[in-house]
């Protein structure tokens, strides 16, 4: 459902904005649903910066955007994961050299019910909770009793298996060859994960920092047993100290030219980076915003 709104908004914006006096350049932008909100916000903000350029944003997933960029139907692809080698080969075979831009970072927070006393977790502990063969299945295995969770069972909340969030969390926490435990509740959206954790004392979930609410707790994560425990915040995602933060990408077909180049330059400028910050993601570099 969500992905239709930007389309409608854009159609309206495109009609309302074009006064027919001059030919407007249209940049086609497609891909990741994680980046959709931000991409839409960029497109809207850019309309006030350069009225001669319209940016048409659609979702559909990282893979969809990348294949559209390879086929030349979009100018810019949004992706919440790096392009795969097979995709880069396919692009080259099609005469396209993909150029990668890191446009920001998304910290994946581990979410717990607000009554859960846990304040710190190590990556190893998270792996023992989520990973296939991991020994932790009860809260008492971590040495805590969660109020309201009489059965002591850890209720795993995860994502459907083709979401970029699912893939990145697996890489970052479970390792390249790791697998999730079967039996997790696989939600269909970042927000659904947080909603379920909010209502379920026994639950643990993971989702983008942008989806945090006041009624869930986010433990700090340490990458090693004895290293500092880092809370998921925009600042720790920017400086790279938070262990489960992923870069967000945009890809263009070849070095961007003309209107596309101006757009990419603006996204990476402080003005563009403040837009991503407003949406709850981290800028790719430290940025002062008012």
């Amino acid at each position: 459902m969500k992905r239709f709104f930007p389309l409608v908004a854009l159609a309206v914006a495109a009609c309302g904005g074009s006064d027919g006096r001059n030919q407007r350049a249209v940049i086609q932008n497609k891909g990741s649903d994680t980046l959709l909100n931000v991409a839409q916000a960029w497109a809207e903000a850019y309309a006030t910066v350069n009225a001669d350029v319209a940016v048409a944003v659609t979702g559909g997933g990282s893979g969809t955007g990348i294949s559209a960029m390879i086929n030349g139907t979009v100018d810019v692809a949004n992706s919440s994961r790096k392009m795969r080698d097979s995709e880069i080969e396919a692009a080259r075979a099609n005469g396209v050299e993909p150029i990668e831009f890191i446009v920001g970072y998304d910290a994946l927070a581990v979410y717990l019910h607000e009554d859960n006393p846990i304040e710190a977790l190590t990556v190893d502990q998270v792996r023992a909770i989520y990973g296939e063969g991991g020994p932790v299945t009860k809260w008492s295995d971590l040495g805590v009793a969660v109020p309201g969770c009489g059965s002591d069972e850890i209720v795993l909340v995860s994502r459907q298996n083709n979401s970029g969030t699912y893939v990145y969390f697996k890489e970052a926490v479970l390792g390249d060859d790791g697998e999730y435990k079967l039996g997790s509740r696989d939600m269909h959206g970042s927000k659904d994960v947080v909603d379920l954790v909010e209502n379920t004392p026994c639950a643990i979930g993971y989702s983008g920092l942008a989806y945090a609410t006041e009624h869930v707790s986010m433990p700090c994560i340490s990458s090693e047993e004895d290293s500092d425990c880092v809370s998921p915040t925009i600042a720790t995602a920017v400086d790279g100290s938070y262990p489960i933060a992923r870069p967000l990408f945009m890809y263009t077909a070849g070095e961007p030219q003309g209107a596309v180049k101006d757009y990419m330059d603006w996204i990476l400028s402080p003005a563009g980076q403040c837009v991503i910050l407003e949406r709850g993601y981290a800028p790719y570099t430290e940025t002062e915003c008012t």
């Binding site: 559909g60 039996g183 509740r185 696989d186 269909h188």
Partner: peptide
């Protein structure tokens, strides 16, 4: 609950064939 699981009690989460298609086909 949409969880891959063989239920042993009525309270266990499970996942249906139809729901799997609906949730995974999109991306």
């Amino acid at each position: 609950g949409h969880a891959i699981n063989i239920p042993t009690s009525p309270f266990d989460s499970v996942r249906a064939l139809t729901a799997t298609i609906a949730s995974e086909l999109g991306d």
